[in-house]
Design a binder for these strands. Structure first.
Length: 255
DNA sequence: ATGGTTGTTAAACAA
């Protein structure tokens, strides 16, 4: 079973990339972030014609998350206790007995900004939610655009990014609290090439120069970590015309 | 050097 995450930065623009990528057999479950579509505008028919089910929680212009799956997802959830938030950043569902929590974590803009405060508060609420979900579901993954590079080796230039947004100590500590619930970063379960990233700024030829960050993650509960056989970043879609600024990340489980 | 690019939406705002 292949579980993937991809920040598509507008599903309207990226739908052809997503459909081609799914047709190539890259994922059984694909979590999307930054769909930037209202639920009314979600391309349900195209996804069903491709042989997949979908769930979505969207809004106009910003944010928006979705789960696309070969099997029908069950028990969807879009809002969590203690977080009365119009921003559509959370979508959980159960697929083939695996609880999938799809997150589009707040970017945070700049360290110390109002949005940065919102990010840290949001992460606290979401951490409590994940802890609850883990009590209910032995097989669970938390996937998405975390907007946090876990370690300096996930950053092309750690000095330039030192204590900046996506890399600051409070953000990394918040991610560590999520991992401390017993969730493993699937990518780091295996030997990986150095300078492996999942996001590259559109500006300054960031992708061509591999000036990236690894901020898109798949975290697995102990029962699934045992079954994880592979985790890779697929940079190929990033090479296409009009790409997302993120690449998809895929984890394979022996299920 | 606070640059540069893309998406949404109509001059910014967000990333």
């Amino acid at each position: 079973m292949k579980i993937a995450t991809w920040n598509v930065n507008s599903l309207k623009v990226r739908l052809p990339h997503v459909l081609d990528w799914l047709a190539a057999g890259n994922a059984d479950v694909l979590a999307l972030q930054e769909t930037k579509l209202t639920d009314e505008a979600f391309p349900v028919a195209a996804i069903q014609e491709a042989g997949f089910h979908c769930l979505y929680s969207g809004q106009k212009t910003y944010n928006g998350v979705a789960i696309i799956a070969r099997s029908e997802p069950a028990d969807p959830l879009t809002d969590i206790a203690g977080l009365d938030d119009p921003q559509r950043r959370i979508l959980a569902a159960t697929v083939n007995g695996v609880r999938v929590i799809n997150l589009y974590v707040v970017n945070g803009s700049e360290v110390g900004s109002e949005k940065y405060g919102y990010k840290l508060g949001w992460l606290e609420k979401v951490t409590a939610f994940i802890a609850e979900e883990m009590q209910r579901h032995e097989k669970l993954v938390v996937v998405g655009d975390f907007n946090i590079a876990p370690e300096d080796r996930d950053v092309h230039d750690p000095e330039a990014w030192h204590e900046r947004i996506l890399c600051s100590t409070p953000e990394r500590e918040a991610l560590k609290k999520i991992q401390a619930l017993g969730l493993s970063d699937c990518f780091r379960l295996f030997d990986q090439p150095e300078q492996s990233f999942s996001w590259w700024d559109y500006r300054a030829a960031g992708f061509r120069r591999n000036l990236g960050l690894r901020i898109d993650l798949i975290l697995s509960s102990p029962a699934l970590t045992q079954q994880c056989t592979r985790c890779t970043i697929d940079v190929e879609p990033r090479r296409l015309e009009r790409p997302s600024d993120h690449a998809p990340v895929v984890a394979e489980f022996a299920l």
